[in-house]
Design a protein around this nucleic acid. Structure first.
Lengths: 356, 356
DNA sequence: AGCATTTTTGCATTCGTATGCAATATGCGT
DNA sequence: ACGCATATTGCATACGAATGCAAAAATGCT
């Protein structure tokens, strides 16, 4: 078809010369809404086709001051919840004609290296999807005038936008569910203790338990990490006053804890021990686990995130916005059932106290 | 500390004025190896600090013709193998001072949308890590003069670089292992049938089985997808001549198949059925599964990938290079053991026929 | 056809940084 | 202190596309 060498590095000027028009005409051809006659557009398109021309996004960014790149910062991808989020983010961002620049790895100590990169590439927006990032970073970005959205986390001062779910209510719901299930001794394996998700989930759990007269909760620290959660579980299950109801701060850890309970301690779930997790992530649904879990409406969370970002980018106004969504307690087989309150909706069993 | 407003959009010229030097001096201060005296560098640095200046990577790219961005294309992240790869890639690329632009989603039909993006951003290199991408895309990129590396896949014509493992040998090894385990009836649940990984793994498996006189293999199509693998497993396990040895083309599917076997058909593993997977990915190691699996040396594969890319970028020479690594058959509990050949190395049990 | 209005076009400039070149400053040896 | 070699600096330009402005072309109206 095209006889010539389709080498990259074709410029708008080259196309212009070939088409016998000015460079401006080429630019306008590729700028939606620009003033260009159908005739010249066609000439330009033909020349562009022949030369294999594509507008240089870098050069365009320089003049428009828009990179159409969104930075996504995720500390770790081991927890399948985050790959899922990433995939959905990619889907929505591409639909909005944005690209996704990914940053992974823990950046606890100094936020500077990442921060520098973000600034250097003049990203149009930033999504911080990690429960463990320094809150310093987020505020620094916000100060620099770049829209930032915290995904699945918040900071004390609500100067920066966030999308979360009602973690506190989730914790409460789980407590109510376990109490209604007739459990007597309650445990908790935490995530990263300083993270907002962990704090809120635990706060709700403890409150609801306290209201029912259960003040002593057996606690282990899992830091949202498999190995640490396993260690915490081993320690907890070795105690003489081993709990019979255990809330693990997310499914990623709950899976590991469940394996420890079954295969290292020979516990029967849910007979000897009820386990409830959080996120309703892939493995929770697998037959081997069937974890009863508070769901987080991932797709709607991602949608809200992109939504906030697009709003701030197009308006230029960076006003902190907080979207708080709700999940459901998805009932499976890892915890004893209460007598009432479990209803079936769309083929999923959900715990809705009050409605039997 | 800094009283002024740390607004973004600070340019090198502004810093220059503040420091009482030329814009060139600022540029050279931030260009490693450029000719600049310690004295002026210090002045520049001070001014830069005060103004919150960071070099604009976009503008820099325009002139250097290097974006320092690597595009990574991954069809789906559901299989934990890929998030793992992604994380490792992020780690290594950042070390080389490159950024990672992520593209997800199936782009089977027309490669054009993605391809356009890649070209528009003038990425310095491309990593195609998906078994299901049109090979058209890869060659198009290569033609355009951008270094491309296929990760965990190849094309027939080896015009584009790739990093793979010895899938054929892996398939053979698995067959040998299952034969040695005394199995009689063999099954296979495939990945995407047109993918090179699937073809090679199956070819090796079939060859070795044929050499031992086993010519009839029960086959199901899983397409590297959980749901499809489950469906294939159901069909296979319902047959009167259900296999007692099953090779599932990757662990992602093997996990699902195992759940179907156990919880829908009440099969005892490995007594009624031996299952072997591929990848040695996270869940394969979990106690609930303990899948015997051909490992892929992910870290070394990623290292090789980055290595090839860096080489091609710095040399400017795009010569197709093929790195083929080897894995081991990690022995766990999902398959009956042969009498000999299982050895323990570094706490891992590996099948090495010939060495007992 | 003649004039007013709108649309299309090209020119010139801009974005922020890097770099070749010439000019200047510094250092060294004697 | 002088001359020469070397290190540092600023000037001017380039990268590739977008855009305000004015000129030119096309269109509409009477």
């Amino acid at each position: 078809m095209d006889g010539g060498v389709k080498k990259s590095g074709v410029t708008s000027s080259q196309v212009a010369r070939r088409a016998g028009v000015s460079q401006s005409a080429v630019s306008r051809t590729f700028t939606p809404g620009a003033s260009i006659s159908p005739k010249t557009r066609e000439k330009v398109m033909a020349a562009a086709q022949e030369l294999g021309y594509r507008p240089n996004a870098i050069a365009r960014s320089l003049i428009t001051n828009r990179s159409r790149i969104i930075a996504v910062v995720m500390a770790y991808l081991e927890n399948l919840f985050y790959p899922d989020v990433l995939e959905e983010l990619g889907r929505l961002l591409v639909k909005e004609n944005y690209r996704l620049l990914l940053f992974t790895g823990h950046m606890d100590r100094d936020s500077d290296p990442v921060f520098d990169q973000l600034m250097q590439y003049r990203v149009d927006g930033i999504i911080l999807a990690s429960t463990t990032l320094s809150s310093h970073l987020s505020e620094e970005c916000a100060t620099a005038g770049i829209p930032v959205v915290l995904f699945n986390r918040t900071t004390e001062r609500d100067a920066v936008s966030s999308v979360t779910t009602r973690n506190r209510e989730g914790g409460r719901r789980i407590a109510e569910f376990l109490i209604a299930g007739g459990h007597r001794r309650f445990g908790y394996i935490s995530g990263v203790e300083s993270s907002s998700t962990n704090r809120d989930r635990f706060a709700g759990y403890r409150e609801a338990l306290a209201e029912a007269g259960h003040d002593d909760i057996v606690i282990g620290v899992g830091n949202y990490d498999r190995a640490e959660a396993e260690a915490a579980a081993r320690e907890m299950f070795s105690r003489p006053d081993r709990p019979d109801a255990l809330f693990v701060a997310n499914d990623h850890m709950a899976v590991a804890v469940m394996d420890v309970a079954r295969y290292e301690f020979g516990l029967s779930i849910p007979n000897d021990l009820s386990i409830v997790g959080y996120d309703d992530v892939g493995p929770a649904r697998w037959a081997s686990y069937g974890i009863t879990s508070m769901s987080q409406p991932m797709k709607r969370m991602v949608e809200a995130t992109v939504n906030i970002l697009m709003g701030q980018i197009s308006s230029g106004e960076i006003e902190a916005e907080h979207r708080i969504l709700s999940g459901d307690l998805i009932v499976r087989t890892s915890a004893r059932l209460p007598k009432t309150g479990v209803v079936e909706i769309d083929g999923r069993r959900i715990y809705k106290p009050g409605k039997s």
